[in-house]
Design a protein around this nucleic acid. Structure first.
Lengths: 224, 224
DNA sequence: TTCGTACACCGTACGTCGTACGCTGTACTA
DNA sequence: TAGTACAGCGTACGACGTACGGTGTACGAA
């Protein structure tokens, strides 16, 4: 067997853990997590399947690393503003990032050990809350509540078959309403009709709930 | 080839869509969703793999049906109480059910069309909110906020490597703190220490946030 | 100059997966 | 008695993750 292309032409074409994981994220974005296989990933990198195992122990570890890449994209809460603005900022960023990588949401359920970017994020959020006057326990409550809201929203949003208000209006007429007999689901019909007429934007829905949560959390704080 | 066991011995041993889906749920509970294969499921039912395809078109449809079985387990909001109690009741039930079937959370992200049990649940919740005096749009907001919180909480809880307060205390000492250098993660260290000492119960965490959300939602209501 | 070793990568092979296709025996109807 | 629907199975195919055992190159030591 000859060494026909053993050495890559340039060092930036060489494999690396970074390149492998980033390309995996791209592939998952394009094709969904079910479309991500070691062979296809290797193909996208112009390499053989088994070469990937030099950089990741197995596919599980690859998925863990992918999740952490996603966390790296999320903005940390800015330090120079009030806590509500800081939390709103990072929550909005989280929603955007998870909307960009919807496969990541479903993956989080099954992987138990947080990566370094995840930990950095948690630390920054906790620091922000503590400095704003939340006692340790209340900061924990706030953390859970905010994260639950953001992840849950992203989860629901990912399972929506539309992205924009216009698409929803079409969808409501063509898909939803036909499968909702008005006598069995009167209230869902009412909602669908009103929302289709009023125009419906997931981004607005998100900030509405977020602001409600932030306001409610204010009561847990010991003002500084 | 003879017909050695072609006919099942009794009718309750015969396959049926119901039996297939319920056994799939049981299998996923035991082994996780990755452990659920058509062959293994057929094995658990004492049947051949291809027999399952008489009852489900493909694995995707099976997963959809499994999700709906999970939704059937969730209690509908009781009608005879105030809206907050009703919502608390169904939220607590949802958390319990999702904790019992953690694989269901990750699955929801990828399936877009809700099953009948899912629709019944949504209808009942919307009805409860509307009757309690929430205008259509506010009921939608409440729905999103509550569902986001519940699903997001379940998602985070599923990725916790412990179930009880005691397990957490052990975990914190043995696993968390060692990988959290105090100088890099001072606030996470503080939290872990305080929580391990105080005892930490996910169920309490859940109701704390839930009550905060319910109280915040009260302001969206037009009292009747 | 030679040689040993670490590096980066790959081919083959095994067992498992979802499922297309075609077959079987049973029950029932005409 | 024949025909048909039902319920279920065996085989086969292509794709999957990955264990194992290679290969050529680079480089430091002798």
């Amino acid at each position: 067997m000859s060494a026909r292309e053993q050495r890559p032409v340039a060092s930036d074409a060489a494999l690396s853990r970074q390149r492998v994981v980033v390309e995996a994220v791209r592939l998952a974005d394009r094709e969904g997590v079910d479309g991500l296989s070691m062979r296809r990933l290797a193909g996208a990198l112009g390499a053989g399947a088994m070469s990937l195992y030099y950089y990741v122990a197995n596919k599980e570890e690859l998925l863990d690393a992918m999740i952490d890449v996603v966390f790296e994209e999320i903005e940390l809460p800015p330090e120079e503003t009030d806590w509500q603005s800081a939390m709103r900022c990072r929550a909005v960023s989280t929603r955007q990032v998870l909307a960009r990588h919807p496969w990541a949401i479903g993956l989080m359920e099954s992987r138990t050990s947080p990566g370094p970017a995840n930990l950095r994020h948690r630390e920054a959020v906790t620091a922000c809350l503590r400095k704003a006057g939340f006692p340790v326990l209340m900061a924990t409550h706030a953390n859970w509540l905010l994260d639950s809201y953001v992840y849950g929203f992203a989860l629901q949003e990912a399972s929506l078959p539309f992205d924009t208000a216009d698409e929803f209006a079409d969808m409501a007429e063509d898909v939803y309403l036909p499968q909702l007999p008005p006598d069995e689901f009167p209230y869902l019909n009412e909602s669908a009709a009103v929302l289709a007429a009023a125009g419906y934007d997931p981004a607005e829905e998100f900030t509405f709930g977020l602001d409600l949560v932030l306001a409610a959390l204010e009561s847990l704080r010991v003002p500084t």
